[in-house]
């Protein structure tokens, strides 16, 4: 037992630069992948929930785009990210006669496309779940579909989907570990390298396991806090009461 802890301590003190580098890369991949995936999700979600144009050509184009998005969502949700990584990385090499993209860039592209497929469904669900009256209220004052999306729907959407987006981020912290198959130097890949140097397989993976947990746990708590903040304050200020125009009455309501 004492031997185990001393091994763990050795790994931490000796390999902390590699471990930190792995943590950094994992967080970079997870964060950029989640953000770009969210952008993909919002764009495809807007397209898929937009009313079809009266113009026949635009209508056909729109329907074709919807079909492509639906196929993209199905395919990327229905296959493992590890296999997607191989297909995209080596597919690029195959198509360009042997060239490869930089590893980190490849990793970001793979995580983004994969996350985008999940986000597309999250966003679509989020838009559909917004009360139809919000669209009608906006249409009735003359707002265009674009203005309605930008000023009314997306702000409400972001609040509604934030928990799911947080969840995707945490999943990505864990799932970027599969990118070791193409050699991206994220945390799991680093642990592989360390293990091959010190031959302490169990102790090394134990340390890495704890680090993954610390990352997901911390990130989850931080995102919870942000969600709470965005829930907004439940109080507002009444201006100018009848007797005292300068008075501000603070009204508080339970959530």
């Amino acid at each position: 037992m004492i031997q185990f802890f001393s091994d763990v301590w050795d790994i931490i003190t000796k390999y902390y630069p590699q471990l930190l580098q792995g943590v950094g890369k994992t967080l970079l991949l997870a964060l950029t992948g989640t953000v770009i995936g969210l952008i993909i999700g919002i764009l495809t979600g807007i397209l898929r929930t937009a009313p079809l144009s009266k113009n026949l050509f635009l209508r056909i184009l729109h329907k074709a785009a919807n079909g492509i998005i639906a196929a993209y969502v199905e395919i990327f949700r229905g296959t493992p990210m590890m296999v997607q990584a191989m297909v995209i990385f080596w597919g690029y090499a195959f198509a360009t006669g042997g060239n490869t993209l930089p590893l980190t860039l490849s990793g970001i592209i793979i995580v983004s496309i994969n996350t985008g497929a999940y986000m597309a469904e999250i966003v679509r669900g989020g838009i559909i779940s917004i009360d139809k009256g919000q669209f009608e209220g906006a249409a009735a004052v003359g707002m265009t579909h674009g203005q309605t999306m930008l000023h009314v729907i997306i702000p409400q959407l972001m609040r509604n989907i934030l928990p799911s987006v947080s969840n995707e981020f945490v999943i990505n912290i864990k799932d970027t570990s599969v990118l070791n198959v193409i050699g991206v130097a994220e945390l799991y890949y680093m642990s592989d390298i360390i293990k091959r140097q010190n031959f302490k397989t169990f102790q090394t993976y134990f340390v890495v396991c704890v680090i993954y947990f610390i990352m997901t746990f911390t990130v989850t708590r931080i995102l919870r806090l942000i969600e709470k903040k965005l829930e907004g304050k439940e109080n507002y200020t009444i201006f100018g009461s009848q007797s005292d125009p300068d008075a501000e009455i603070h009204v508080e309501k339970g959530a």
Partner: peptide
Amino acid sequence: RAEVGMVFQQFNLFN
């Protein structure tokens, strides 16, 4: 639509 306003049963204020 701006000239022809509408008030709904369910209000439809922007939440």
